[in-house]
């Protein structure tokens, strides 16, 4: 085994275990922590894939901002004492898991077989050491994808205003 395979197995295993932990822990704080572990392992996978910028953005955006918000809300609502009991029957839960496994099998089948006659499969495999620099991504963002890029800023603005409206209305009703 070469180092890349060992690292792939390591990061892949950590991210899968973390993901399973997210849906198995009772307490939301532990779920959130497992999710952070998963995000980190995925950042590691991104580095393996030569996508350094995306890996850093992953840690900054997901681990540094989004998950802090989650923890903040969990702590603010103090959900620890008020754990949400699974109202779902065990039969339904079993059905959900069986369907999930079927879904996973489908996904794996597609990943392994169905790519054969697409452009991805016929493309020349890139050299192992190819890394995408921030420059490449920036150039694409500001030339070919300039319109989506600007639209994203509108989405962020809408989110900003939306959140302020949600919170403001709350306060007026209280007073």
């Amino acid at each position: 085994m070469n180092p890349e395979q060992i690292l792939f197995i390591l990061f892949g295993a950590v991210s899968l275990i973390g993901a399973i932990a997210v849906i198995s822990f009772r307490h939301p704080i532990y779920s959130a922590l497992s999710l952070i572990v998963t995000f980190f392992a995925q950042a590691g996978l991104f580095v393996l894939l030569g996508a350094h910028f995306v890996a850093a953005a992953q840690v900054i955006v997901y681990a540094g901002a989004i998950m802090v918000l989650f923890l903040f809300v969990i702590m603010l609502l103090n959900l620890g004492t008020l754990s949400v009991k699974g109202a779902m029957g065990s039969k339904l839960k079993g059905l959900a898991i069986i369907l999930g496994i079927l879904f996973a099998a489908e996904g794996i089948y597609i990943a392994v077989n169905a790519l054969n006659d697409t452009a991805v499969a016929s493309a020349e495999p890139a050299a192992a050491s190819v890394t995408t620099t921030t420059y490449d991504i920036g150039e694409l963002l500001f030339s070919k994808y300039i319109l989506p890029f600007e639209v994203t800023s509108l989405i962020l603005l809408a989110a900003l205003i939306g959140v302020i409206v949600l919170v403001k209305r709350e306060r007026q009703e209280e007073s």
Binding site: L16, A19, G100, A104, G107, I108, I110, A111
Partner: peptide, 10 residues
């Protein structure tokens, strides 16, 4: 891709 499918399913 398999790993991605597994994570999505989780």
């Amino acid at each position: 891709l398999v790993l991605s499918a597994l994570l999505f399913t989780t």
